[in-house]
């Protein structure tokens, strides 16, 4: 196994386990270099009022890079808003994939579990492939999977915080609780956070700010690509157990009396 063995979500296989968000990117030129350096095959995009939207260059870059688009519902606070935004995304981008995001608090941008599950149920019924941004709660994750979500995407810490994975145990429990792919989404600050997500058993990592707002986005994209591959390899290699005391790696047998 290599670090790039494929994962499958909504029936589609991806060899890259890095999902890239475009939010926060400084220019279309940087976007193209960053997407290519990351090796990603799945990229999130958003919809805004046309006066505030990106110009057509962004879509040209993403089309040229050959990535699949994952429209989000960022900024939605209710199931009704999220369902309508997902439908508008389907219309604009021509895909029934959606990163479902329903926010319950402006300061923390934490998901609203009640609205999220309601929106997920509606969108699954409407034929969407729902990748749900959620908390690291294993019970909620299971409810989303049972509702038919294609993937559950727990946060490591609040969006854009760069605080990494605050509760690795919760992510590991969520991984055990569902059969659909688990994508660590939000909170990644640097490469070791992405590697940890993979070591905990996540199928992929979704990040935006950690790369787009890094001093050198292209270089950080390369770092994240390596980290995700390294973490995946380490997970599949089977790490040693943690011990309270030392365990010598050099044998005692034959130790001379000096």
């Amino acid at each position: 196994m290599t670090g790039t063995d494929p994962w499958i979500v909504a029936g589609e296989a991806f060899s890259s386990r890095l999902v890239l968000g475009t939010g926060g990117i400084s220019s279309m030129e940087v976007l193209e270099r960053t997407v290519r350096a990351s090796g990603t095959q799945l990229v999130t995009v958003a919809l805004r009022r046309i006066e505030a939207s990106a110009d057509a260059a962004m879509m040209r870059v993403l089309d040229r890079c050959g990535v699949r688009l994952l429209p989000n519902t960022a900024g939605c606070r209710t199931a009704r808003e999220a369902v309508l935004t997902a439908r508008l995304g389907r219309e604009a981008f021509g895909t029934d994939w959606v990163k479902l995001e329903v926010i319950g608090d402006e300061r923390t941008l934490l998901p609203d579990a009640v609205e999220l599950l309601d929106a997920a149920e509606h969108l699954v019924d409407d034929g969407f492939r729902v990748l749900a941004y959620t908390t690291d709660d294993a019970v909620l994750g299971r409810r989303l999977a049972d509702a038919g979500c294609a993937a559950v995407m727990p946060l490591g810490s609040p969006i854009g915080s760069g605080l990494g994975i605050r509760n690795p145990h919760a992510i590991a429990l969520l991984r055990e609780a569902v059969d659909v792919p688990v994508v660590l989404d939000a909170g990644i600050g640097t490469a070791s956070d992405a590697a940890l997500a993979m070591e905990l058993g996540c199928d992929a990592v979704l990040l935006a700010s950690a790369v787009t707002r890094a001093r050198d986005p292209e270089r950080m994209a390369r770092a994240m690509r390596s980290a995700v591959e390294a973490g995946r390899l380490a997970r599949s290699a089977g790490r040693i157990p943690r011990r309270w005391h030392a365990e010598a790696s050099t044998q005692f047998e034959g130790l001379p009396q000096l």
């Binding site: 968000g21 989000n72 935006a208």
Partner: peptide, 10 residues
């Protein structure tokens, strides 16, 4: 009416 178009997003 809401008339929307693509933009960058995470």
């Amino acid at each position: 009416l809401e008339v929307l178009a693509p933009t960058a997003g995470g």
